[in-house]
Simulated assay, not measured.
Amino acid sequence: MRKLAILMMMSFLLLTITGCYNRRTPSRFQLKDSTRLTDSMTQAKFDSLSMDQKDSADFAIKHHYSVGFNFIIRGDSIDLIKQQPEEVVSNMTVDSFAVKKGARVAVTDIHMLKSDSVDSVWIQLVTDQYELGWIHESKLLKNVDPDDPISQFISTFSNRHLIFFLIIISFIAVGYIIRKLMRRKSHIVHFNDINSFYPTLLALIVASSATFYATIQNFTPDTWRAFYFHPTLNPFSQPWSIAIFLISVWAMLIVGLATIDDTRHQLKFDDAFWYLCGLGAVCAVDYIVFSISTLYFIGYPLLIAYFWFALRSYFRNSRNVYICGNCGARLHRKGRCPHCGAMNE
């Protein structure tokens, strides 16, 4: 109970600290006069704006970025056109230049060209070398991330190639680690667990978070897109769906620390290492299985079944009901003590 109370206090402290999170200061080439429509803007203020300002505000709401927004190039490179979009549509000769991967760019202008059959939205960018150029929005968004580490982290773990790679590696790792642990008759979550509920709780939180993440993707994708463009670690400033997801991420971190602490006290270093490796592999598989299966609505009954299996396994196998008469170690059953080798009848 004492440890649980400490964890609850840590959770409250971390969430309080994240409430002070502010976005970075604008970059040296980010425009400062962009029009933004915030939640605090009243209808009267909106009505007082000019037509161009209203269009800019409406674009910012629908697309989640506007003039002055910073991007970082994710793809190999993008080509920016020096001339105006009308010249491109009219098939006139134009010049272009490449912006390489990792470069930072800022939006300086947004132009709607209805006569363009490819994409009516053109975005003008300025590079960190102060070069100006135009590009279709559809082509731009495929090759950039918002210039924020959280957005870039989300983009990395949403990459399809990475997911397929993680699937293969995770299943290989799980098979290898479980086989190794079974041969050594070592502890492993859900099967021969240690006397702590934290590992089981961590696996359940990971599975639940992955399921909830996929649920947001299914039912409120625009909410997730808004979070992607304007991320934060503070759950109190977000819509309820994003807030729950962020709280689960913080809970994952805190319970993970408690798991490491409990494992360190109950097992020797090498046993603790392999136990945590096995737990990490199980959590990786949980994330992949539930985040993908929930997209096809299979994850919901699968999560219920997983909860039943995990809780049943813990209460059935993890409770220590005996104590070794020689060294005092806790035992699941009578017989030879795995710690000192003494026989307990």
Rank of each mutant, 00 (worst) to 15 (best):
K54E: 08
P85V: 02
G328T: 09
I260A: 09
M112P: 10
C327K: 11
S50E: 05
L331H: 10
I123M: 03
A210C: 03
N70R: 05
M1S: 11
R330H: 08
T263Q: 02
D262M: 09
L14Q: 03
R24S: 07
V105L: 01
T127F: 04
D79R: 12
T294V: 03
H332M: 07
E131I: 09
L4W: 05
P231L: 08
L181I: 14
D128I: 07
I188A: 05
D222R: 03
M182S: 14
F69M: 04
G102K: 10
V99L: 02
Q152I: 06
F153R: 09
Y130A: 10
L37K: 09
I167K: 12
L113E: 04
L267T: 04
L166E: 09
D47I: 05
S209M: 15
F59W: 06
L140F: 13
V107R: 08
S115P: 07
F191V: 13
I123D: 00
A310C: 05
I188D: 09
V285L: 04
L14T: 08
K101F: 05
W250V: 03
I163L: 15
L7K: 01
D116R: 07
Q217V: 09
T93Q: 14
Q266S: 11
R24P: 04
D119Y: 04
L140D: 11
K32V: 10
L276C: 12
C277F: 09
V189D: 00
A106Q: 07
